[in-house]
Every structure is written in structure tokens, then in C-alpha cells.
């Protein structure tokens, strides 16, 4: 990888990422044996269970210690270790274009790029889906360098689209994901939380480990200084004239309530949720993801 070849992945970040390893705690279905715990039983050293011997089984698999105690034939089964598959859902709606120094989309792109690099570096597969209210780009899982370059190029060419509909994107994407793995959703979650988690249910049911990264700009929490302001919605273009001083407190409470609601629902669904602010370095997100 040449120096400054990609916008969202610079050599300094690559150097820092060398100390990280992508190892989410989840069971994966993979084609490479050895790295991750697989739900498929097979040849491995990691004991999983006993089962009665059946015709066709290798007699060498019989556990003779059990036979000595029970006079019955049991064979050991082992968990198969394999490579994992990581799917990134990147929200590219218009609202993600918000931010003064660094837009939320740029921040999310930096994080996505680093994650892609980290996953492919550890021979795991990475898939990327860029969406707004529909799936704009879909990259099936891959782990090759060419695949990574494609992803980087896609991220660079990506720009903010129209309205957010995470739930729609999740629903439409589910049939595309053949293997279970890690699902990382990077969005500002301007959607109905109930609809989002409803759309996540099939993934969770299938055994996906889901991470929700809520990208926020500080100005979304603290409205600008007290003055009459005409706000324009970046997604719908709707305008509202309001005195920020009058609604400042109420707004802050509303947004925190919303985040709390997301966090609470995520906890109930056993989904990891993390609020990420664009003024903090995205490497901090890895601490949560790779711990």
C-alpha cells in the first residue's frame, strides 16, 4: 500500500493499526479453520460435546474412558475454528453530511476504512454496504487486497445522499448476507428506534454479532448560541425558525432521551451500542469493538 494512496486510510493509521487485531467475540461460519470459533463441529482441538457412536464414524474418535465407565460408545465432537465475516453498514444519508470541520460521513468513512483494513489484514472477510433510504452500494465479503482497494475507492467516491432509512436498508440487506458474522452499523440513527431493532431481529436470530456506532457531532447535542435561527433539515429541506435559547434545554433532553432509548433497546437485544463523537478519534471505537 503506497503512501497516501487512499483518502480515508493513511500510512500513519496503518502503522497504528498494526497493534490491533480484529477478533470479535462471536461464533463464525468460515472456510479457514483455526482462527475463529465455528458453530460447525469438526476436526479441532476445542472439545464441544459427546454423542453416541454411529455407523460410519471413525472408530478412532471413540472415547474409551467413557466406554470404560458406561460400556457404551461415545465419540467426542469438537468446535471447528474458521475465518470470520464482517459486514459494515455505512449510513450515507444527507444528515451524515453534517459537521463543521469533519462531517459525520467523513468520520464514519475513516472508521470504516480502518476497520476494512484491519479485517482483511487478519485474513477475515469484509463486506460493505453503503445506504441511505436504499442500498446504494453493496460489496460482498472479501479479504483480498483488490477487494480492499475497491472498498477504499468506494468510500472515497461516496457522498451524502438523501433521507435515512436504516430499517429499510437492514431489511433489504438481510437476504444478501449468506454467512453469519459481525454486523457493524455506522449511522446517525435518525430513524425510528423500534423499526431499527425490528429490522435487526433477523440478524440477531441468525447469530450475528451486531455493533451499533452512533455517529454524532457535538453541535447536534448543544445547539448554537442563543439567537433566532432558521434551521433547514439536510434531509428533507424543511425549515423551522426557532430561538435556540428557548429550546436549548428541551432539545438537549430530547436527544439524550433518544440516545438512552437506543442504548436501552440495544441492551435488551444484546447489541453493542456506542455513541461516537466526531471530535474524538475513531481509534477509540476499536477499543470497544476489539476488546
Amino acid at each position: 500500500m503506497t503512501k497516501n494512496r487512499f483518502k480515508y486510510l493513511d500510512p500513519e493509521d496503518i502503522r497504528k493499526l498494526s497493534s490491533y487485531e480484529f477478533a470479535p467475540k462471536l461464533l463464525v461460519e468460515g472456510y479457514l479453520a483455526g482462527r475463529h470459533i465455528s458453530t460447525s463441529r469438526g476436526l479441532s482441538t476445542e472439545f464441544m460435546d459427546y454423542r453416541q457412536y454411529a455407523e460410519g464414524d471413525d472408530p478412532g474418535m471413540i472415547d474409551w474412558k467413557v466406554f470404560a465407565r458406561t460400556e457404551r460408545y461415545y465419540v467426542k465432537t469438537y468446535q471447528q475454528e474458521t475465518n470470520t465475516c464482517c459486514y459494515i453498514f455505512l449510513d450515507s444519508s444527507a444528515s451524515m453530511d453534517f459537521g463543521a470541520k469533519l462531517t459525520k460521513l467523513e468520520y464514519a468513512s475513516f472508521f470504516t476504512a480502518a476497520l476494512c483494513y484491519l479485517v482483511t489484514k487478519s485474513d477475515n472477510q469484509i463486506g460493505l454496504q453503503i445506504f441511505d433510504n436504499a442500498i446504494r452500494h453493496y460489496f460482498p465479503p472479501g479479504s483480498t487486497g483488490a477487494h480492499l482497494r475497491n472498498l477504499m475507492t468506494a468510500l472515497e467516491k461516496n457522498s451524502a445522499g438523501s433521507k435515512t432509512s436504516l430499517s429499510t436498508a437492514l431489511k433489504k440487506s438481510f437476504p444478501l448476507l449468506k454467512r453469519r458474522g459481525t454486523l457493524i452499523v455506522i449511522s446517525d440513527f435518525f430513524d425510528d428506534p423500534a423499526a431499527i431493532f425490528h429490522a435487526l431481529s433477523p440478524y440477531l436470530h441468525k447469530g450475528f454479532k451486531v455493533y451499533l456506532f452512533h455517529i454524532l457531532d457535538r453541535e447536534e447535542l448543544e445547539l448554537k448560541p442563543d439567537s433566532l435561527t432558521l434551521f433547514r433539515d439536510m434531509e428533507s429541506g424543511e425549515r423551522i425558525s426557532v430561538h435556540t435559547g428557548e429550546i436549548k434545554e428541551a432539545y438537549r433532553k430530547a436527544i439524550y432521551d433518544y440516545m438512552d432509548r437506543l442504548r436501552e433497546m440495544a441492551f435488551l437485544k444484546k447489541v453493542d451500542y456506542m455513541a461516537a463523537f466526531t471530535d474524538t478519534h475513531y481509534f477509540k471505537l476499536f477499543d470497544r469493538l476489539l476488546k
Binding site: 453534517f98 439567537s227 432558521l230 433547514r232 433539515d233 428557548e246 429550546i247 432539545y251
Partner: peptide, 26 residues
């Protein structure tokens, strides 16, 4: 009425709800 400055904001969902409530007071 004073013409306020235009400010692009990510989502007016929350502001709309608040304004809808506070307009009754205003």
C-alpha cells in the same frame, strides 16, 4: 419579524417536536 440566519441541521425531528410543544406556551 427579524430574518434569522439559515442553519443546515442534520435532522429537525427533535426540534419540530419541541417547537410543537412550546408554541402552545409562546
Amino acid at each position: 419579524r427579524k430574518k434569522p440566519p439559515l442553519y443546515d441541521f442534520s435532522s429537525l425531528e427533535f426540534i419540530r417536536k419541541i417547537v410543537k410543544h412550546s408554541i402552545r406556551m409562546k
